[in-house]
Design a protein around this nucleic acid. Sequence first.
DNA 1: TTCGTACGGTCCGTTCCGGACGGGCGACCG
DNA 2: CGGTCGCCCGTCCGGAACGGACCGTACGAA
Lengths: 190, 190
Amino acid sequence: MDVRLSTTSYVVLGMIALRGPSTPYDLKRAVGHSVGYFWHFPHAQLYSEPERLTGAGLLECASEDGGRRRKTYSLTDVGRDALRGWLASPTDEHFQMRDIAELKLFFNEVGDPDDVYRLAEEQIAQHRARIDDYEQMVERFGESPAAGPRMITLELGLEMEYAALRFWRSLAQDDLDGLRAARRSAPGAP
Amino acid sequence: MDVRLSTTSYVVLGMIALRGPSTPYDLKRAVGHSVGYFWHFPHAQLYSEPERLTGAGLLECASEDGGRRRKTYSLTDVGRDALRGWLASPTDEHFQMRDIAELKLFFNEVGDPDDVYRLAEEQIAQHRARIDDYEQMVERFGESPAAGPRMITLELGLEMEYAALRFWRSLAQDDLDGLRAARRSAPGAP
DNA sequence: TTCGTACGGTCCGTTCCGGACGGGCGACCG
DNA sequence: CGGTCGCCCGTCCGGAACGGACCGTACGAA
């Protein structure tokens, strides 16, 4: 009856709340072009998690048989309350970046100086591409009703992308020579 | 002999490369005030992962017995090469934010309008606190040799924090009324 | 009708995660 | 000096997350 609700659970609840009754596959696609941009989910969980939540009474499941066995899940009142409670509760954890490029940068002393340069180039390209995606989404989405509430998150994403792009650009342009010099003058370190 | 190397593995290798021979507990503390700020690790992995890596020949283990059984791990040449190879390899994945606040913002339509306001306040406080931490680290660290290479990552962290802070601030100040209005005018959505 | 292919769903072996437990150690008190 | 108390360090374990492999099902094309 009482299951631990993880962040994953709330994403499932939230998606169903926004979209209405959905199948796992619907969720998969919806997540793919929204939340998925900043929080990764393996698709398998979008099948197993609704089952768990149904067991806990937060979702209802309508099995539609005939041909492909597919299940449509919808929110119960309990589920909606749980989601609302989460939205209203304080958020204790700080965000995690989970940026492999940042890790590589952190360990850059161990490798070849040119690695950093290549890394920066890569990152610039990647962030630019992502920014293009986002900006297209803004354009396409800007006309729709309900643009306000949904667009906000996109704006946060854009801001973070811009910040990252600026950083890697300035790294590639200005700092690399300085970095190299600093490294020559202090090859080992405590 | 050939083990899958995950990001975790490279963090362990990298930490040992930067610090020299270390015990798991050393790693735990070192991670705690560096990499840990942007990539979270449960401590248990810092005990199990070095063992795996030793099995694969990337680390060497010196067991110091007597009293508490503790093990000091150091890099082998194979390990150093693996790390260097990783640093030189292209980075395919884009970063993930893993920001619970961002999720809550995304689902804000479902909850109470005031939730967003409180969320923003919280986030402003949290990001400010984090920025203070970072800036103190910059001050304390700026004097040390090898400041250049190590400080760079910190700067990226700061940039991201500034961007987040700016976002939540502007959300709290300007946009909330607009958001409320938009929501009133488009209560349901496709 | 048959084949090819994209779609939708399931399974399973690994890794991750974090809480809980437990033994060791120094500090402090009697 | 000896006890015990609280922190330090390490381990264990169950559940969640992960992702890749696999397998049916539908549907259009040949």
